[in-house]
Design a protein around this nucleic acid. Structure first.
Lengths: 381, 381
DNA sequence: CTGAAAGCGCTTACAG
DNA sequence: CTGAAAGCGCTTACAG
């Protein structure tokens, strides 16, 4: 490959890298002056600064992240460790959307995201320790918050800037961003109660996670407040667990008339069980999900769900983490004490066909729209 | 936070970092000897090496990536730039699964993945240039390959190790990994032909992408070989385009009896149009998709699709890129010329209910299984 | 096989 | 406001 039209400027560094020394030489100043100028710090006159910046542009100088990091500057990288198999992450709509949102904000601020997949929560903590002592990241985002999560005290002790995704009340002194699951639970239960359901079951996900516990608790509390009969059915992880749990609920003497699923994947699995049992949604059983995604929207009937853009969630998390990192840097200079801050995202309910009001008789639905298409498709075969 | 049980070893570096100088002092050797020892290079006796490694472990030494990078060693990072909005990436099942696969392999080899979201393909090339001149990455993975993709010559000129996801025949001198779309097309067309369909339409995705073109071409060629009538309907991007295209196909004088969609998202959108038109799948129209995902599996009837684990795709891509990076390093020493290598992933067809053989009459399907449940659910309301 | 030294490209005190 | 210097933690020739 011969270099064609534009020959890149050659510097004095290894591999013809352009360095601040090259700029300094051209500008007739020291490299320290260049450093101050390009970093927007006081210490050089405006005229000198302008001249230096001009030359830097001309030479197409790019700072060396390695040199900066070695000299103590931020490494412009945040880390995220995931203690789940790649296969499962890949199957989850949440993961991709969340990462995309994180990336969007981080990229804009010239930060990059470093991810690592490990086997166990312990390995996750070990990774934090290594990243910290290697100075590989300026901060980390903690996901999949658990009850009594060992990562929280570990991070507090390390002093590595961190943002916890999840909460509230279980993130120690670390700042957190979370979706208000108690609120979401009330929205769902109230909606089903308004439709006249009095026996509601919740098919609950993996209870090592904090949000599952919070849903469990609020579900029971809200049902009691409204005088509803509530069944909390733990279903472990994923679709197969949801199938078993749904089947179990249906075999009860008095099966519930509404099912609440912890994820859209679980909701769909549950719907299939209902279908095979000859039960129609929503005519026989109403179905709703804590998670919205194309899966929930694409199902027939489309599934009522808690809307929460995972992409937006990722954006907010990134924003907050960058704030924390910036604050840390300030504090190092001013010596002020930081305080844990928390931000709650308010979920909203998206009502769809799977919880449509039960119209009796065969008169058909009164309002026919794209959000609530007929569940009975006429056959012209 | 007082440090409790185990006090971390303090070194001489800034912030009490343990450095190779500390190890050298303890071992009574120079730091150069330590460097050789910990990197497994010849130059120190076995006995000395053992002693050095022992002390390194004891002191819990961690190498500084910044220092290593600055001294010319690999930075252990690979990059990926995406020229698509976060919102769209998030909605795509492929993205998350692919990244998870990449991560799995990279994490294992102690590499990290750096991602960046940009607006345009030009900005993508600019990012490559910057990463290269900053020595921020050891290599990059190129996705969303286009026809006459400007990134290919740019990367060739830069000399940055790269792996192209997509192909074949359009990745210049760069190595590539791709799914054989021609093969996939033949699998789909042949399957539909065997079922007796003679008029097949393909609802095609965004044709800026190379794989769309390859499918277009093979689709036409295979249909001609089999004497089928084929309709190639460009649908632009995403669900709404697919809806319009499907509606258009149905309004033809002789509408097709089978529809082939470029993605599962499009297939579902198409199914909804069929449903609203009162057409049953597969009884009236058969449907198949080039992409498999929970969306395709969860639909009723489940959709026949090309199976290709995006996670596995990511793993293979990461493996290949690491090979390319390693080869580059070797070559720099030996001076041998590298040659572009290509790896094709063979797709397979997963037959599901959406293309079930058309049984005439109301006798119902003969084999009733979870993969092909009744489309008519009996109502017990 | 080992030791002493230079250098990677930057930042940050510390004198003038 | 500016200049000269030390230092970040490592690797890599280059002498012994």
């Amino acid at each position: 490959m011969a270099a064609e039209q534009r020959t890149p400027p050659r510097g004095s560094g290894r591999g013809q890298r352009v360095t601040i020394a090259d700029i300094a030489r051209r500008a007739g100043v020291t490299s320290a002056a260049v450093s101050l100028a390009v970093n927007g710090r006081p210490g050089v006159s405006d005229a000198t600064r302008e001249r230096i910046l001009e030359i830097a542009r001309e030479l197409r100088w790019e700072p060396s992240p390695a040199a900066r990091a070695l000299a103590g500057a931020p490494v412009l990288t945040v880390g995220m460790v995931l203690a789940r198999p790649a296969e499962i992450l890949g199957a989850e709509a949440f993961f991709g959307a969340f990462v995309a949102g994180l990336q969007e904000v981080l990229s804009r601020e010239d930060y990059s995201l470093q991810m690592k997949i490990v086997e166990t929560p312990e390995a996750e903590i070990e990774t934090f320790r290594r990243w910290f002592s290697q100075r590989r990241v300026d901060g980390v985002v903690v996901v999949d918050l658990r009850l009594d999560d060992a990562r929280i005290p570990a991070l507090e002790e390390l002093g590595l800037p961190a943002l916890v995704v999840g909460g509230p009340g279980h993130h120690g002194s670390l700042p957190s961003v979370y979706v208000d699951d108690a609120h979401a639970t009330r929205l769902l239960v109230d909606h089903l109660a308004e439709l006249g359901h009095t026996r509601i079951a919740r098919v609950a996900g993996d209870d090592v996670f904090l949000h599952t516990h919070q849903r469990d608790r609020t579900f029971a509390a809200r049902c009691e407040e409204l005088g509803l009969e509530c069944l909390n059915q733990p279903a472990g992880f994923g679709a197969s667990g949801a199938e078993v749990a749904t089947a179990e609920l249906l075999s009860r003497e008095e099966p519930p008339s509404a099912l609440l699923f912890d994820s859209d994947e679980m909701a769909l699995a549950g719907c299939h069980v209902l279908e095979q049992a000859g039960l129609a949604v929503p005519a026989d059983v109403a179905v709703a999900s804590y998670e919205d995604s194309p899966l929930a929207r694409g199902h027939r009937p489309p599934i009522t769900a808690i809307g929460r853009s995972a992409t937006e969630y990722g954006r907010v998390a990134a924003d907050r983490l960058l704030e924390v990192i910036a604050a840390r840097r300030e504090r190092r200079e001013t010596g002020g004490a930081g305080e844990p801050e928390t931000r709650a995202l308010i979920p909203e309910l998206i009502v769809r066909g799977s919880t449509a009001p039960q119209l009796d008789g065969a008169t058909g639905p009164s309002e026919e729209g794209p959000e609530r298409p007929a569940t009975r498709s006429s056959r012209t075969a």
